[in-house]
Measured scan of single mutants.
Amino acid sequence: MDETGKELVLALYDYQEKSPREVTMKKGDILTLLNSTNKDWWKVEVKITVNGKTYERQGFVPAAYVKKL
Rank of each mutant, 00 (worst) to 15 (best):
M1I: 11
D2G: 13
D2A: 09
D2K: 06
E3F: 05
E3C: 12
T4N: 15
T4C: 13
T4D: 13
T4S: 15
T4I: 14
G5K: 13
G5Y: 11
G5W: 11
G5I: 14
G5Q: 14
G5E: 14
G5C: 13
K6V: 14
K6C: 11
K6Y: 15
E7D: 10
E7L: 09
E7W: 11
E7N: 11
E7G: 10
E7I: 15
L8K: 13
L8W: 13
L8E: 07
L8A: 06
L8C: 10
L8S: 06
V9T: 02
V9C: 10
V9F: 04
L10G: 02
L10A: 04
L10W: 06
L10H: 04
A11Y: 02
A11K: 01
A11M: 02
A11F: 02
L12F: 03
L12S: 02
Y13D: 08
Y13S: 08
D14N: 07
Y15C: 02
Y15S: 01
Y15F: 07
Y15M: 01
Y15R: 02
Q16G: 05
Q16Y: 15
Q16S: 11
Q16N: 14
E17S: 15
E17Y: 04
E17W: 05
E17R: 13
E17Q: 12
E17G: 15
K18T: 12
K18I: 06
S19A: 07
P20A: 12
P20R: 09
P20Y: 09
R21C: 12
R21N: 14
R21W: 15
R21Q: 13
E22W: 03
E22H: 05
V23R: 01
V23M: 06
V23D: 00
T24D: 03
T24G: 08
T24M: 04
T24I: 03
T24A: 05
M25A: 02
M25L: 08
M25Y: 01
M25N: 00
M25F: 08
M25T: 03
K26I: 08
K26Q: 10
K26R: 12
K27H: 05
K27Q: 08
G28M: 03
G28K: 02
G28V: 02
G28N: 06
G28A: 02
G28Q: 02
G28T: 01
D29Q: 12
D29K: 02
D29W: 09
I30G: 01
I30K: 05
I30F: 04
I30W: 05
L31W: 02
L31D: 00
L31N: 02
L31Q: 01
T32K: 13
T32D: 06
T32M: 10
T32W: 11
T32P: 15
T32I: 14
L33Q: 00
L33H: 01
L33C: 06
L33K: 01
L33P: 00
L33D: 01
L34R: 04
L34S: 02
L34K: 05
L34H: 03
L34A: 03
L34G: 01
L34Y: 03
N35Y: 05
N35D: 15
N35E: 15
N35P: 03
S36L: 04
S36D: 15
S36N: 08
T37F: 09
T37Y: 08
T37P: 03
T37L: 09
N38I: 05
N38R: 08
N38G: 09
K39I: 12
K39T: 11
K39H: 12
K39C: 09
K39P: 14
D40V: 13
D40S: 10
D40T: 13
W41G: 00
W41D: 00
W41T: 02
W41L: 03
W41R: 03
W41H: 03
W41Q: 03
W42N: 01
W42P: 01
W42M: 03
W42V: 06
W42T: 03
K43H: 09
K43F: 15
V44T: 01
V44R: 00
V44I: 06
V44G: 00
V44P: 00
V44Y: 00
V44N: 00
E45C: 10
E45S: 15
E45M: 12
E45T: 09
V46Q: 15
V46S: 12
K47V: 13
K47A: 09
I48C: 10
I48G: 06
I48M: 10
I48T: 09
T49Q: 13
T49P: 08
T49F: 11
T49D: 10
T49E: 13
V50W: 08
V50K: 10
V50L: 13
V50R: 09
N51Y: 07
N51C: 12
N51D: 15
N51K: 09
N51M: 11
G52M: 09
G52H: 08
G52D: 11
K53C: 12
T54V: 14
T54K: 08
Y55D: 07
Y55M: 13
Y55K: 12
Y55R: 09
E56Y: 15
E56D: 13
R57W: 03
R57E: 05
R57D: 04
R57H: 07
R57K: 13
R57Y: 05
Q58K: 09
G59C: 02
G59P: 00
F60H: 04
F60D: 04
F60N: 04
F60E: 04
F60L: 09
F60A: 02
F60S: 03
V61D: 00
V61W: 00
V61Q: 00
P62T: 01
P62M: 02
P62G: 01
A63D: 01
A63F: 02
A63P: 04
A63S: 14
A63K: 06
A64D: 11
A64V: 08
A64N: 14
A64W: 08
Y65W: 05
Y65Q: 05
V66D: 00
V66H: 00
V66Y: 01
V66I: 08
K67W: 07
K67P: 01
K67I: 14
K67T: 15
K68T: 07
K68A: 07
K68C: 08
K68R: 13
K68L: 15
L69C: 10
L69D: 03
